[in-house]
Design a binder for these strands. Structure first.
Lengths: 253, 253
DNA sequence: CATGCATAAATGTGATCACAAAAAAATCAA
DNA sequence: TTGATTTTTTTGTGATCACATTTATGCATG
């Protein structure tokens, strides 16, 4: 594993480059993580050369990584062939959340019969990790561990065909998650994951679906406050970026 | 519009290159159409240079088109970094069909309030076009018009967020559709699209969902005959390709 | 005829360059 | 100072090349 630092002195601690993976794969993971954890603001343009220079690779890996993320819906290809972080309207957000509920309750129900003791204990561990991240006000890790919890359940199914679709929706919501979490401390927080685990333990499909749906609604609920969302759509919301220079690095070479 | 003929003398009549679109976009459309209409068999490897030479472009557009299709799930990236048409197991097919039903009944229900008279008449036209293609035993056009019918309905919604996901599922089923249609003449065929239109006219959500679900089940039903599907998974099924050389052109430069 | 091995061909990856279009900056006129 | 116009820079697209790895081929040996 090589630890990589870009030309601005920013440390990609979470996206180290494995010795076996290709440059393109690494750029893809780094960019995906940046989008997923809300480090790039909607409406921001991502240029090939900017990304290539920031990560110290040629244009080729950057180009292909951008195409992949665009195909997955994480980024948006504008008419002038420039790539930017997609914006989100309240109506669109509502649709995405409905799709999340539809697909994830389905995935959970399908996975239920295949959940083993090991998977169950793994889910408990991931939930605890998320709670820790939440306690120490770490938005990125909270997001990551929450997704890991859900993924762990859904992938219990031997044919998790819906998993890529669900990940695509998570990716679209990525920029919003930080906004949601930045206001999270103001709210009381019921741990729906415990209810999910309980429903799995008792092999209760209906209870599981209810718990999943509640978890999704509440997790995103903080972002649905209209005034915040509209700020976000205009790119005005103060996303409380941990490393503002990272964002500039993405834009400017 | 320029009509393009590759080095094997094969005519891409359905995928002419517009003067405004980029080479990569054209390659993407051509490949997508080839996969969607089942012109490439599962397990077949698609090489960068093979595609580039066939379509008389450089490697660059071919590479990016392959990445896009891989991201969309239309193609599969193997561990050795080669791209191939994905295979389909009975279990996986079952999952994909359940997802289609889940997503498309949802999309139809959400679109229902927004369907205008124009859209309705357009749906009737597309249905008639499909029936014509079916009568003259034209599998490709049958597939295309069927998808156009469904798309016309779902896109009535002002925020068709689920449309890309649905298209992704269609893409995964592409290679199977030809197989399904090649055996279609043996079966009696109830036109579920008429029931769809009727349900839309009467603004009947439940009837619409039933009609959509039936349409999906029956449309794919012919391919679920186990013996055929297993042949398909092994790449042994005679897919009755209209231009076998096209396939070879994709593989070999 | 089958099998293991050395050679040759093909393939994916990554870098660099040229070119045209688009965006930004600078300049000039009112 | 403002607005339009020209110049400069930036950006995406496409082509080509080198390199390492994988795959296919041919050949000799058993």
């Amino acid at each position: 594993m090589t630890k990589t630092v870009n030309q601005y002195g920013i440390n990609f601690s979470a996206i180290e480059r494995s010795d076996t993976e290709t440059a393109q794969e690494w750029v893809y993971r780094a960019l995906r993580y940046a989008v997923m954890s809300g480090q790039v603001q909607p409406g921001m343009a991502l240029t090939i050369r900017g990304i290539a220079n920031m990560l110290c690779v040629s244009a080729m890996p950057a180009r292909e990584a951008l195409w992949r993320l665009t195909s997955e819906g994480a980024l948006h290809l504008k008419a002038n062939r420039r790539v930017e972080v997609p914006t989100m309207s309240p109506a669109k957000l509502s649709e995405v959340l409905q799709l999340r509920i539809l697909l994830e309750t389905h995935a959970a129900e399908r996975a239920l019969p295949y959940v083993t003791e090991e998977i169950l204990s793994q889910m408990a561990i991931l939930n605890e990790l998320q709670n820790e991240a939440l306690r120490r006000q770490d938005p990125e890790q909270t997001i990551i561990q929450n997704q890991a919890f859900h993924r762990c359940l859904y992938e219990a199914h031997p044919n998790p065909v819906s998993m890529p679709l669900i990940e695509g929706l998570w990716l679209q919501l990525g920029p919003l998650h930080r906004l949601a979490l930045s206001n999270m401390e103001d709210h009381y927080f019921t741990d729906r994951h415990v209810e999910v685990i309980k429903a799995v333990e008792t092999q209760n499909p209906f209870g599981l679906k209810v718990a999943i749906e509640s978890d999704i609604r509440e997790g995103a609920g903080y972002a649905t406050q209209t005034e915040l969302l509209e700020q976000y759509a205009r790119g005005e919301a103060p996303l409380d970026l941990p490393e503002g220079e990272f964002v500039e690095g993405l834009l400017k070479q």
